[in-house]
Design a protein around this nucleic acid. Structure first.
Length: 865
DNA sequence: GCAAGGTC
């Protein structure tokens, strides 16, 4: 039996289909791993797909600190210190209990495990995909020969080399060869298997050097930053060859913005229209000078036109321009286009993976922007007629005798650009999935479409002797824009005017403005910038940006660095500058080339890199205290939500170790005891400036951002009148009155839960209490409910005030009562369950159609070749 | 509780 090992299941399936001589390969499973069996030249073949890297590099378990001992910091004297422990908790006696934590203790011949030694620690490769490895070994035992068919690049060679090591463990004498192909076409695959070569161990070693260097630098610097000032569990401060320069890009832009000195300028603008026309038909005009940099000049010009009500058209110029249809999508351009539609790159990749698995789009991790000749463009376009929204456009497009596709700049043959492979149904896909599918499908059709022709018109208008201009665009030939409206600004249309025409002029004004600092990166732009600088790969960039958000180095979109992010970059820039620039990646690339070419060995390159790191770590350890302080200050600044109304110190968001919840507390604790509760399950943000201080009580106002709901602002003080009237009397207790007592009904707010309720002052005797809505200002009335006699109150929310009976069991509350709420919620959850069921049904249905589709595609591509 | 690179 001949065993072919590929990088992914997809490749195993495709290669089996292309090499099989007697019909379709038989899909089988070894344990849980799909494999494909077929015969060729009288021999049994089987292909198996790995899942990328099956081994992961790591330090020996003795160095991993996987038990409770924590990571370690080094004092300036070079002494091994346990991690800082939050005040009040016992300091574990690490040194005594764990002798190997001492300096100079040998483990496997290495001194461990203080930070400087970590730099020199050995690295092992441990199984990461145990299931795949088990299946691989099972097949390898029975193999007469093995072909490594992983991707044709450095990581592919490494993945193949790791797989080979597993194979040789169980079948040491099996002959092994390497197939090198760069497209899943019959010609390419046949050629690769007819010209098998040896695995390139130098290339695999180059890949492994990359793994080791990334791990050693990342682990040492991450542990250092995390321990320089321990911020509690869950507060890792990470660093790495790609993430740190990426963060530096964002910080650099923020520094430019901070250093920016705005310049004053003035503009004169207004609106004009045909004589007597409506405001709706008016268009924008502006002074031909554009920006006045001298105020007096602007004033002078404005004084001429201030009272003008009409102008004369002095010139009309028209110029047509064409707009070329966009290039096919690769991963980066898809991420950028989707980011402009509000999907983060990481989310885009998760959605794309799901669409790919459902058979709706092609493989989403590609650099290529040129469709291969084997892709049947016409058939794909025709398939999209199955989506009703596209059908009319597809009919027109496919009526053309020939289809020409645009070509992008990047041309590889690994995979085709991202294109639709199935018919998407908006009623079956999640809204975000549909959004992405729609973008991809329309982009595909756009790449086959004609250019758009736009006629631009410029008007010169004389207003009281001052020159004004107006411009407008009209889409003359829509071309691709009829199907692809994304990323384009709307045209402003001008009425048909000729030289000498008189127009009405309105709303002229002189506005003082200031030049803007350079804009922050959008997530899409950041992805593109990373690509330009060689940071990360198409498969990793999205997740690296996401990582920078989870460690709280970045916030908001457009991307903004936190104080912590800026402090980290400042510190590393001073003591370990190599990690903060893309240079490390480009130098690593050069080293990898040397290893691949055999002029340097893996050991030499890794050793050299360790030595560089060791020097930088010495400097970092020397300044551990300064750096720890800078980090602590930055974290405080990030957590700051306002000033303490009692003592004037900073109020910050703190997290309670006991409840795992957050609260606002004063930095002056324990001298100052000011604390405020925070709503749970929402993210919060400080509000800058005056708006961040409650005008009623002086406590901070914060912005709350619930998941997938509208953000709102509140004062953090639950007793603040902006939250509710404290202890408001809403009426008298009827039950008590009937019993001959007096009881007042008072509105309260629980400080613990934040919930509001009404309770009788004689609650212990009568037990009367009513729930209240969570938000909204309450006002008492003199009225009692005509149905049940309970007091009426007014609740004022963002939607306006409404009067209601406080008794939730009262028939007048039936429409808005919690009872109805519960019923509705029950129904909603029932609907959700049904939807889930539907989704599951959809998934399996989609899988079926995928299978059908891929087999029909296979047929057509075979027919085409 | 560390990185970045594959892929699911």
């Amino acid at each position: 039996m001949k065993l072919v090992i590929t990088e992914k299941n997809d490749a195993a399936e495709k290669i089996a289909a292309l090499l099989s001589e007697a019909g379709k390969p038989k899909k089988d499973k070894v344990y849980d791993t799909p494999v494909y069996r077929f015969t060729r030249e009288g021999e049994e073949w089987v292909t198996i797909g790995l899942r990328g890297h099956i081994l992961a590099p790591d330090f020996p378990t003795e160095l991993k600190f996987t038990d409770k001992q924590g990571w370690f910091a080094i004092s300036s004297e070079g002494e091994v210190l346990p991690a800082d422990v939050p005040d009040g908790l016992p300091r574990p006696p690490f040194k005594k209990k764990k002798p190997f934590l001492e300096d100079g203790v040998d483990i496997k011949g290495w001194k461990v495990p203080s930070l400087p030694y970590l730099v020199w620690a050995p690295v092992e490769k441990l199984p990461a995909e145990k299931g795949i490895i088990r299946s691989l070994k099972n097949l390898a035992k029975k193999a007469d020969s093995v072909v490594i068919g992983t991707d044709f690049d450095r990581e592919g060679e490494l993945i193949g080399s790791d797989a080979l090591a597993q194979v040789l463990e169980v079948n040491p004498d099996v002959p092994v060869s390497r197939a090198r192909y760069s497209a899943y076409t019959r010609g390419e695959i046949e050629h690769a298997f007819a010209n098998l070569v040896e695995l390139d161990q130098n290339l695999a070693d180059a890949g492994e050097s990359r793994q080791y260097i990334d791990l050693i630098w990342g682990a040492a610097l991450t542990r250092y930053l995390t321990m320089a000032r321990f911020g509690g569990f869950g507060n890792v401060r990470s660093a790495g060859r790609v993430q740190t320069p990426t963060l530096a890009l964002v910080v650099e832009r923020e520094r430019e913005r901070m250093a920016f000195v705005p310049q004053d300028y003035w503009v004169i603008g207004g609106r004009a229209c045909e004589q007597g026309a409506d405001d709706d038909a008016s268009f924008k005009i502006s002074h031909a000078k554009g920006r006045f940099s001298v105020e007096e000049e602007a004033n002078a010009a404005y004084s001429h036109v201030e009272n003008a009500t009409s102008g004369t058209v002095t010139a009309v110029t028209k110029r047509s321009r064409t707009q070329r249809p966009p290039a096919p999508f690769n991963t980066t351009s898809l991420q950028a286009a989707a980011a402009a539609e509000g999907l983060s790159p990481a989310r885009t990749m998760r959605l794309a993976e799901s669409l790919y698995m459902d058979g709706l789009i092609s493989y989403p991790r590609v650099d290529n922007t040129v469709y291969p000749p084997s892709l049947d463009l016409r058939a794909t376009a025709k398939m999209l007629a199955g989506v009703p929204q596209y059908a009319p456009y597809v009919a027109k497009l496919t009526a053309e005798p020939e289809l020409h596709a645009t070509r992008g700049k990047q041309f590889d043959t690994d995979h085709p650009p991202i294109y639709p492979t199935g018919v998407g149904d908006p009623s079956k896909l999640q809204p975000a999935e549909w959004k992405l599918y729609n973008l991809i499908a329309r982009r595909f059709l756009a790449t086959l479409s004609d250019p758009a022709t736009i006629e631009g018109t410029k008007l010169a208008i004389d207003v009281a002797g001052e020159p004004f201009v107006a411009s407008g665009d009209v889409l003359k030939v829509p071309g691709f824009r009829a199907i692809y409206p994304f990323g384009l600004k709307r045209d402003e249309q001008l009425p048909a005017l000729a030289e000498g025409d008189v127009v009405d002029v309105r709303d002229l004004s002189l506005d003082a403005k200031q030049t803007e600092p350079p804009a922050r990166y959008s997530q899409g732009k950041l992805i593109q910038e990373m690509e330009k600088r060689g940071l990360g790969t198409k498969s990793t960039r999205a997740s690296i940006i996401e990582r920078l958000y989870t460690v709280k180095y970045l916030k908001n979109d457009p991307v903004e660095p936190s104080q912590l992010g800026m402090a980290i970059i400042d510190a590393l820039h001073t003591y370990a500058p190599r990690i903060t620039t893309p240079d490390m990646t480009s130098e690593l690339e050069q080293d990898m080339t040397k290893v691949a070419e055999g002029t340097d060995t893996q050991d030499q390159v890794v050793h050299h890199s360790r030595a560089l790191l060791a020097g930088m770590l010495d400097a970092l350890i020397e300044h551990k205290d300064d750096l720890g302080e800078a980090i602590a200050d930055a974290v405080t600044a990030d957590a700051r939500v306002g000033t303490c109304p009692k003592c004037g110190r900073d109020l910050v968001v703190k997290s309670s170790a006991k409840t795992r919840g957050s609260f606002v507390g004063c930095m002056g604790w324990p001298d100052c005891d000011v604390t405020y509760p925070l709503p749970s399950g929402v993210r919060y943000e400080a509000i800058e400036g005056e708006a961040g201080v409650c005008p009623e009580c002086g406590a901070p106002r914060i912005k709350c951002k619930p998941f997938r709901a509208k953000a709102y602002e509140i004062c953090v003080n639950p007793k603040c009148p902006t939250n509710y009237e404290p202890d408001l009397k809403v009426g008298e207790c009827k039950v008590c009155a009937e019993a001959g007592r007096h009881g007042d009904l008072i509105a309260h707010k629980s400080e613990r839960s934040g919930k509001r309720f009404i309770r009788c002052t004689n609650y212990d005797e009568c037990g009367v209490s009513y729930p209240l809505p969570a938000r909204g200002k309450l006002t008492a009335t003199d009225e009692t409910c005509p149905e049940c006699g309970a007091p009426m109150i007014i609740v004022e929310t963002a939607r306006g005030p409404w009067k209601k009976c406080v008794n939730m069991d009262c028939p007048t509350n039936e429409r808005k009562t919690p009872a109805r709420g519960r019923a509705a919620a029950g129904k909603a959850s029932g609907a959700k369950k049904a939807a889930t069921k539907k989704a599951t049904a959809k998934k399996s249905a989609a899988k079926k159609t995928t299978a059908k589709r891929s087999s029909s595609k296979k047929n057509s591509s075979e027919a085409g070749e």
